[in-house]
Design a binder for these strands. Structure first.
Lengths: 340, 340
DNA sequence: GACTGGCACTCCGAAGGCAGGAGTGCCAGG
DNA sequence: CCTGGCACTCCTGCCTTCGGAGTGCCAGTC
């Protein structure tokens, strides 16, 4: 083992011990708990180097060392492989999710599951409309001047709008509109469908164009403009448990959690590979309120296509390997569920 | 002023000072800040009596006094009248709510408004389905064996379910079902509609009864069984600000907030008078996690009919008069909005 | 009988001092 | 390059002290 390698082992040991004990870890305790094969004096030298490299820091002179954000980053990138979950764990996840009856229930169960498995704050995004397909569009008259437009997405999510018309409209016209809209959009990506629908009004006789335009505009709204990406979260109380870990109060964190836009951005910046797990550590988060938290996220979806994200949020001092394993496993099972 | 009256004034002064300063208040400080017209020794005697009556308590010997739950209760019941809001305040509320574009937006804006006006945790319940009416039911085929059932409530809220059938069904049959279902339910209270629908299947030829039963069962689910009363909340970060006020950690409170069932029960126990504001103080709350919080709620609805509740939750040490005024004012404006 | 001034007493909380321990950096030697 | 040893720093916990705020009670006054 070269001395470089040993230094990395020391970093790993510091991270592991600090995560477990929440206390700055010193050279002596380190050699006692890990088989490093060298004396504490040597470790001290290594620690000095690690500190020069900005990977660890001491809260004050003559205290033990604590990993910095950069230290955690290196740990996550190079010192840990995602450990597979045990068979009983997998079965528990699969079993719990399998009981879900509809999309809302899937999301709800997923977020609770994540929170209870990781003991942290869990965030799950509803399958995004923009990246999924149109399964069906329904256009029905409720009264002569009031039309219900329903969009059913490939993910099972349903959006509906009520449309008030200036003039009454007949059922036959409506049926024609319904058929043409479906012909143009069913099975296509939402964005694609929206584009194709733009030219639809021209294909109708002038006196019907107002109606068609209104329907298209409503669908557009539902699809594109107000894409209304919903997120749900659970386990906020876990923040209180880990309260001391945050450099300041948990107030800013709670604030950030309430800003769903912030959460969506966190979940939005995902790679297209559903199997990969992304980690953002401390200052790496743009949002000021989250600069003492880490966020572990993964995409999920149908097959290889990512339609939404999920993840957990906790103190930078978190058990990254097992958190990452859990997030990955849950994302995988949810994807499987959506495929079925 | 009788000595009884003075004792109540003393209680009022203690509550007011304690709410403002967050510190136990002593006899000397009391005579300095309020015009009680007697000496501190007299106040001490009054305080001893109030303590015997269980209205105030001292954290330890030789400390000032703090109101008990019973003390707050008496204060709320007898020592405070709801102060009217100033004209600019009213205008701010009305203006902010008036910008809402749909029901979701109304609820969203309301909860944020409540949180920011009171600096506490705000809770708003979606207009409850059970107490409102059916505006329209839509039954449409998506494919031959997949039917979409949509329920539109009088409040504008929409619930939908997708129904998988064993056998294909024709559009004509579906139209008949749709008409009959609407004839039985449109304009009626949800519970009433649910009751009337029970006998519907028998009115159809035997080969169609399975379909009708399935539709009715689905509607039933949407209406009664899974009445899915939604609540939203905002301002959880305010808990952190007032962290020291809670006897223990804020963890249990956050836990309770996540249990929407608990929140719904809080909002559910309202009088039928939309103008009244209910206050539950400390131990008066059933839920263990909320025993050091107070909850101020009011119903809102269309006209005199209460369809849902809203309110705020904070430490027992809260400014009851202004919180109650705010809750009442917001409830009133939301009701007005729903009426329009 | 109600109120008041005075007084002794209690108790918390801040401030200071002290000892112990954990940890570090550095140095000289293997 | 590693190691043992040593001096030094600084936090932490503990104890003590001290002041202040507040109380309860009592005797005196209106």
């Amino acid at each position: 083992m070269s001395s470089d390698d040993r230094r990395l082992s020391v970093l790993r040991a510091i991270v592991e011990d600090y995560v477990r004990t929440r206390e700055p870890v010193g050279s002596k305790a380190l050699v006692e708990r890990h088989q490093l094969g060298v004396s504490s004096a040597t470790i001290r030298n290594d620690m000095a180097t690690l500190e020069d490299e900005g990977l660890i820091a001491q809260p004050h002179t003559s205290a033990g060392r604590v990993p910095t954000d950069a230290g955690y980053r290196l740990f996550v990138d190079r010192l840990t492989e995602v450990k597979p979950m045990s068979a009983p764990e997998r079965r528990a996840i699969a079993g719990f999710l399998a009981g879900a009856v509809d999309l809302d229930d899937v999301v709800d169960r997923t977020v609770r599951l994540l929170a209870s498995l990781t003991h942290q704050v869990a965030v799950v995004q509803y399958p995004s409309l923009t990246r999924s397909t149109v399964r069906h569009v329904e256009v029905v008259a409720m009264t002569a001047q009031r039309v219900l437009v329903v969009l059913i997405a490939g993910t099972g999510r349903v959006e509906q709008r009520v449309l008030e018309l200036d003039d009454p409209v007949g059922e036959d016209v409506l049926a024609e509109v319904r058929n043409r809209v479906n012909a143009e959009s069913a099975g296509r990506l939402l964005t694609e469908a929206a584009a194709r629908l733009q030219s639809l009004p021209e294909q109708f006789p002038p006196e019907q164009r107002d109606l068609v335009r209104a329907v298209v505009r409503t669908l557009d709204e539902a699809l594109v403009e107000e894409r209304e990406e919903r997120v749900v979260l659970a386990g906020a109380a876990n923040l209180a448990r880990f309260g001391q870990d945050f450099s300041q109060s948990i107030g800013p964190v709670l604030d950030a959690l309430e800003e769903h836009v912030v959460l969506l951005r966190l979940l939005g910046e995902l790679s297209d590979d559903p199997a990969s797990v992304a980690v953002r550590i401390g200052r790496e988060n743009e949002h000021a309120g989250l600069r003492s938290t880490s966020v572990v996220t993964s995409g999920y979806g149908r097959g290889a296509e990512v339609v939404a994200g999920l993840g957990v949020l906790g103190p930078t001092r978190m058990d990254y390997p097992s958190t990452m394993a859990t997030v990955r496993a849950v994302a995988r099972y949810v994807s499987r569920l959506l495929d079925g």
